[in-house]
Amino acid sequence: MVISEGMAEVLRSLRLSGVNGVAQASVRALGAEGVALSLLVGASRMVEPLWCHPALSARFEELQFTLGEGPGHDAIRTGSPVLEPDLARVRPERWPALLPAARDMDVRGVCCFPLGIGAIRVGVLTVLCAPDRLPNDQQYADAAALAAALTVACLDEKRPDRRNSDTPDPGVTVPQTSSLHRAAVHQATGMVSVQLGVSMEVALLRLRAHAYAGGRPLGEVAQDVVARRLRFNDDMSGPNSPDGGKG
């Protein structure tokens, strides 16, 4: 299917302004409730939000990161789009923690398109679907075209006017503390691994479980661990604040 005129304009802007210049236009062209672009960064390939619009998209990306589950994770893992325009129809056991939290956020549907070529994974484009109607074939075609163009733009280190890609659209959320939060999660995971004598994978699960139980972002919990305001003792006693929370 041929892309819409609105998406054609977005792709033209992408070539001129870089990846950070198309957030708001992408939301309009797709008729979506929100759009987020997240990239895989570092040796650990952790998901790092590049931009989100509007703020609802930023909150949903943080939710997926905290819980370690959701359509974005599945799209990156499989390399195939994950299209769930109506989360109410998704089996509860698929994303048991994410589904009720997404409902509380008033996120009704999500479509995630992986960014990559072959076995190379670059990131994921997350589209929040409008609650009053399901995405049509044109919107799917437009989103797939945008994901493909973003893949090329992110891989192409020699694209023209790359310096402009650091200037986002006005009103677009560009997470300023995201990198710091992700670095803290890495460090906290190692500390919890030592405290509990478990693998890094199990330590990260414990961090995520504690963040979910407390209704807090994973990055905040990780920063408490790094600052030694929170310590994971063992499976019997669980986390505690050894210094009374004074740091």
Rank of each mutant, 00 (worst) to 15 (best):
L180S: 13
Q138E: 09
P242T: 06
V22G: 05
E61W: 00
L128A: 10
L128P: 11
V22M: 09
P168R: 11
S38V: 04
T66S: 12
L11P: 04
W51K: 15
L50F: 10
G42W: 07
D234Q: 08
S17N: 13
A23L: 10
L14E: 03
P96T: 03
Q138N: 06
S57A: 15
L128G: 07
H53I: 02
R77W: 09
Q195C: 06
G238F: 08
R89F: 03
R216I: 10
V107D: 09
L50Q: 14
H210G: 11
S80W: 00
A153V: 04
A130H: 14
H73V: 14
L196K: 13
R229L: 06
E61H: 03
A97P: 00
G118P: 02
A227Y: 09
R206K: 04
I3F: 02
G214T: 03
G190A: 09
A88W: 04
E33G: 15
I120N: 08
H53D: 13
D86N: 15
G245D: 11
V22A: 09
P242I: 07
M236P: 01
M7C: 06
P175F: 02
G70H: 01
E93P: 01
L67T: 07
H210L: 09
R15S: 11
L205Y: 01
S237E: 14
N240P: 02
G118T: 09
H181K: 05
T177F: 09
T78E: 15
P71V: 05
W51R: 15
D243F: 08
V122N: 15
D74A: 07
V107S: 10
A149R: 05
P242W: 06
E220H: 02
N233I: 06
G171R: 14
S13C: 10
V226Y: 06
M7W: 03
A119N: 07
Q195E: 13
L218Y: 02
S165C: 01
L16T: 12
L196G: 10
I76K: 03
S80C: 11
A36M: 14
E69M: 02
E5T: 01
P96E: 07
G79E: 11
P81R: 01
S4Y: 00
M191C: 04
A8L: 02
A102K: 04
F232R: 15
Q195V: 01
F113C: 10
L87C: 10
G238K: 05
A147C: 01
G244Y: 07
T126N: 03
P100V: 07
C129I: 08
G123W: 05
R108N: 05
G21N: 09
R208L: 00
P81L: 03
P242S: 12
M236L: 13
T151V: 03
L180H: 15
S237M: 10
V19G: 07
R103V: 05
V225I: 12
V194F: 12
C52L: 05
S13P: 00
L128E: 13
Q187W: 01
F60R: 06
V127G: 04
C154F: 06
L196R: 15
R45Y: 06
R89T: 14
P175E: 15
M7D: 06
D161Q: 14
V202Q: 08
V35E: 08
V27S: 11
S241F: 03
V35P: 04
P239D: 08
N164Y: 14
E9I: 05
R103P: 00
N233P: 12
Q187T: 05
V22N: 10
